[in-house]
Simulated scan of single mutants.
Amino acid sequence: MIVIAVANQKGGVGKTTSAINLATAFAASGWRTLLIDLDPQGNASSGLGLASASRGASSYDLLVDEVPLSECIATTKISNLQIVPATVDLSGAEVELVSVPGRVERLRTSLASVQEYDICFVDCPPSLGLLTLNALTAADRLLVPLQCEFFALEGLSQLMQTVEQVKERFNPSLRIVGIALTMVDRRNRLSEQVSDDVRDVLGDLVFSAVIPRNVRLAEAPSHGLPALIYDHHCAGSIAYMTLARELISRLPSLRKAA
């Protein structure tokens, strides 16, 4: 199974939207897909139609109480896609785990024996705390959504440093699979300038596909659906399908190994 952490310590960059829609695109392509919601806000869970009251065992139980992964998985309305939901309890997980031995390896341990999925996306909180470290320690690859704004590169160097530290201490195989430019407004010259600057700095690490600002992307979570289901033909959905195809092209050796 391939594990991809979707992370950026800056909030509001389209991280959860990317995790939901990429997971949906992979599931629609026949990949047996698992999405793990590690954000205490639980937006990935609600974005897939799981009401707070209906969530049973969650990612909190998985990490803190070491409840088996199979007992934390919930079904979604989408074929081939299941989720480990998050609840508000997760907000206290970092405090509860701080003195626990092997605290950054809890997620990796839980995923170690899983055979029934082809790929797992982990939606991380907007921070570089213990929850994100668990995701990076468990992941084969990191996907970074980067908002196309003036301060797009602010904080990215810190994330890169964290990745290097995780590689040295916990997960030598971790690599960045790509940077996805999000919230691009082609009517705004600043968006194009920032996009060009990011590509100049990061080169081929940046995906060719870009995610535009799109009303239907913003509306979809309120209906408990990914944009790919809510409006398959909108510009945002088409962009995420293009991004998913590009991501798949960067994973062939990993999929063979999986």
Rank of each mutant, 00 (worst) to 15 (best):
D196W: 07
A218N: 10
C148Y: 01
R106C: 00
Y117S: 02
D200I: 11
L111A: 06
A53Y: 08
A218V: 13
R169K: 12
T132N: 01
M241C: 10
A138F: 02
T182R: 02
Q165D: 11
R189N: 11
E71H: 11
P212Y: 09
M160L: 11
E246G: 13
A53W: 09
S191Y: 04
V13Y: 08
S222W: 03
L202K: 11
I83E: 06
D197A: 15
R169Y: 13
E192H: 15
S18Q: 09
L50D: 09
L174I: 05
R186D: 14
G224T: 04
S173G: 05
L69V: 13
Y117T: 04
G224I: 02
A93I: 06
A27K: 02
V95F: 08
L133C: 03
L174V: 05
V206R: 00
E246I: 12
R55S: 02
V95E: 10
I179W: 02
E71M: 11
G155D: 03
I73E: 14
E168Y: 02
D65L: 09
A244C: 07
I36N: 01
G47T: 14
A27N: 06
Q161W: 12
F121Q: 01
L130R: 07
V64S: 06
S222D: 10
V95C: 07
K167G: 02
S18K: 02
I83G: 04
D65F: 05
K15D: 09
P101L: 13
I20Q: 04
A135M: 04
A135L: 05
S58V: 07
D65H: 12
F207D: 07
S45H: 05
E246C: 12
S79L: 09
T182V: 05
R141A: 13
V6W: 04
R255E: 15
A57M: 14
T137L: 01
S70Y: 01
K77Q: 10
F121C: 04
P85N: 13
V13G: 11
A139E: 08
D89R: 12
N21Y: 04
R187C: 13
Q147M: 11
I20A: 07
R169M: 14
L251T: 08
I4P: 00
S70K: 06
K15Y: 03
L174F: 01
L81Q: 15
I2P: 03
V206H: 03
D197T: 14
N21A: 10
P68T: 12
T76C: 10
V163T: 09
H232K: 08
A209H: 10
L225M: 10
L156W: 00
L247G: 12
